[in-house]
Amino acid sequence: MSSDNEVIERSAVEPAVFATLYDRHAPSVFRYAAQRLGDDAGQDVMSETFLVAFERRASYDLTVPDARPWLLGIATRLMRKHSRVEAAAWKGMSADLAAQIAPDAVESTGSRIDAERLSRRLAKTLRHLSPADRDTLLLYAWADLDYSSIAAVTGVPVGTVKSRLNRARRLLRRAAGAGSTTTSTEQEIDHGRTDTAPQRS
């Protein structure tokens, strides 16, 4: 099976093969977008992402085998058009989030608040993050991109990614009721990946 970069390279002379990329990554783009915007807007972003990607395929760095970060970067930029939808989605997402958070996860935060209150705080914090910080955090936590991939798709240095992530995590930590453990470092230290798997998986 051809890697993504091989497919994109081939699509320069045989555009129809670009649909292969859609078949591989559309569900992943949808999951990320729908988680943030809801299913309807998530579907729009999924579809539009591949239309933009097709137009921009000549700009793809052919040394990168996996196109998923590139596609998620496009999706993230497209989602800026849906900021109102996203703001509304965060407001209504508390119950959804609560359903996703396993009871032992709530327990292990050390917080006495229940899952619903915790998720409400998380949603509120996410809603109030700056767009850049929120994009960075969610590309990291929900899309599983690493620092360098986030830096590449958002067009900022890796150091900026770490700073944004650190800032966002501090606020999240405070919302989760564990503010006393706030890190003193200015930039994110790459320790978040030590506990990467969702507890449900």
Partner: peptide, 8 residues
């Protein structure tokens, strides 16, 4: 908190 978010 990051893992908590991932759980969500």
């Amino acid at each position: 908190e990051l893992t908590l978010l991932r759980n969500a």
